[in-house]
């Protein structure tokens, strides 16, 4: 559905995206994972045709580049910066964005009502956006992107700065969109979101795609061993890297060297994958 080949974008002498090759099949939720400045937003902008690549091609649905008006009609974008008019109501915002997507008449009315319902904002539809919470604005931002029922949906950090309730609502929305068969590219620097939502993940750092695959696949390949952390009665903390923390804990108890006050088992996750690939944690960067 989305094909990137040799995609490169430079700002001055700095590579924002370097020789990126990627295929996202129809109906997949693909996660772009990386710290701030990794090149996620630039990659999405190139996919959307908002930026012109210095090299390489973007092809959407085998129909051509996203700068083509016909292709663009198949795409929706929820930008990272809230792209809403604060002095318009939620409904007025959606009506305007629907109209510029070519909707009109009853179709527009229905799609606006559906969008508001989908993101749970019907009761607040006639309030000014300026009166919405950050989470509600994020949800409206998402609704504005799906009004015209795009086949391809690009979501740039859609949960930044939102409350847990709105975040869960957005997760539910994305899962519903996935169930509808939409192709979604989801950028985030939250591993747990990628783990929950994405079929495949691409780990991006300094414009380069470091690893690509399913979440479990990546963990298996780059996550390393699990970690068992034991706190003894004497207050000492011991960490043991192991493939099987349960057996390691049993072994520890059998040795009866020190009594265990508490223990913690950590399964390797994408955070560890990133650490192992870059030598840094996502939050360090």
């Amino acid at each position: 559905m989305i094909r990137l080949a040799g995609l490169t974008k430079k700002f001055g002498e700095r590579f924002a995206v370097r020789s990126l090759d990627l295929d996202v099949p129809r109906g997949e939720v693909f996660g772009l994972l990386g710290p701030n400045g990794a090149g996620k937003t630039t990659t999405l902008s190139l996919m959307m045709g908002l930026l012109e690549p210095d090299a390489g091609v973007v092809d959407i649905a085998e129909s051509g580049p996203p700068t083509d008006v016909g292709v663009r009609r198949k795409m929706g974008l929820a930008p990272q910066a809230l792209a809403l008019y604060q002095e318009l109501t939620g409904r007025e915002n959606l009506r305007f964005f629907g109209r510029i997507q070519g909707l009109s008449g009853t179709q527009l009315d229905e799609r606006v009502d559906h969008g508001l319902e989908f993101v749970g904002l019907t009761p607040r539809a006639n309030d000014l956006v300026a009166q919405y919470s950050g989470g509600m604005q994020r949800r409206l931002n998402l609704a504005a992107a799906i009004l015209h029922e795009p086949q391809v949906l690009l979501l740039d950090e859609p949960t930044v700065g939102v409350d847990p309730q709105s975040r869960n609502h957005i997760f539910d929305n994305i899962e519903a969109l996935k169930a509808q068969g939409r192709t979604i590219v989801y950028s985030t620097h939250y591993m747990e979101e990628a783990e929950r939502l994405c079929d495949r993940v691409g780990i991006l750092d300094q414009g380069e795609l470091l690893a690509l695959g399913g979440v479990n696949e990546l963990i298996e390949a780059h996550g390393g061993l699990g970690v068992l952390t034991i706190t003894t009665e004497a207050g000492e903390v011991r960490s043991i890297e192991t493939e099987n923390p349960v057996i390691a804990l049993a072994d520890w108890n059998r040795s009866e060297l020190e009594t265990v006050r508490s223990f913690e088992m950590e399964r390797p996750g994408l955070e560890r994958v990133f650490l192992n690939l870059t030598g840094r944690t996502l939050r360090d960067t």
Partner: peptide, 13 residues
């Protein structure tokens, strides 16, 4: 500055 121009840019207009 508010980001709405990005959404307009991404629309088929």
């Amino acid at each position: 500055t508010s980001g709405t121009l990005v959404r307009l840019q991404s629309a088929p207009i």
